[in-house]
Amino acid sequence: MDEILNIRGISKKYEDLVVLDHLDLQVRSGEVVVIVGPSGCGKSTFLRCINALEKVDDGEVILDGKVIDPQDKHLSKVREKIGMVFQSYELFPHKTVLQNLVLAPVRVKKMNRKEAEEEALRLLERVGLLSKKNNYPRQLSGGQKQRAAIVRALMMNPEILLLDEITAALDPEMVREVLEVVLDLAKEGRTMIIVTHELPFAKAVADRVVFIDGGRIIEEGEPKDFFEHPKTERLRKFLHSFTYE
């Protein structure tokens, strides 16, 4: 399969603290890569470096064979192709769900408003939010907000989707409704990089799981091997911290 994203040796420091230490990752089209690791290991920063929300100190991110340059005046053109969903939803509070969804397609892609709305309604129906189209974000539950935020990212039809701990702020009973949407996207063949703490979900959705600790990739593999036969001591310890035996 063809490679869509190539991350080569990216490093990131905050003052003296090394957050990312020469990380490499290649993602193929249609692949779902799940990143796990302890808090503060750099996994969120890693995602944010991909669409240049954070500037890397070293290394490069290559999308479709082109290096992403954070200084590029046309950075927004690149970001169109990379969807991102945040832990705290980040819907726009002054806009209704529908307005949230059509903003970028209309302003950025210059899509006809009517077409954009039709597409939005189609996607809302798919995630079970059609009845909420005219509601403001504050009128939705956390799970509904996050589904709306996923749809907002999908509206740009991105080549790759970055999900940054999208269920971490949700009540347990709402996690499932959001993750089911993501599973559905995976089945559809969406390329995704997912940062999560939901290990059972990671196992179900991933083509490949990557364990980051201390800003480095410690281990990676197919989900079955990764979870059942961890090769490194650090991963074993990390996985063990989720069990109560």
């Binding site: 669409n51 929300l53 927004s76 053109k77 970001r79 169109e80 990379i82 969807g83 991102m84 945040f86 980040e90 819907l91 726009f92 903003l103 970028a104 302003r107 950025v108 892609k109 907002r152 990212a153 740009m156």
Partner: peptide, 9 residues
């Protein structure tokens, strides 16, 4: 950030 991630300038 969320607006810019959507491709808005």
């Amino acid at each position: 950030e969320s607006a810019e991630a959507l491709g808005l300038t």
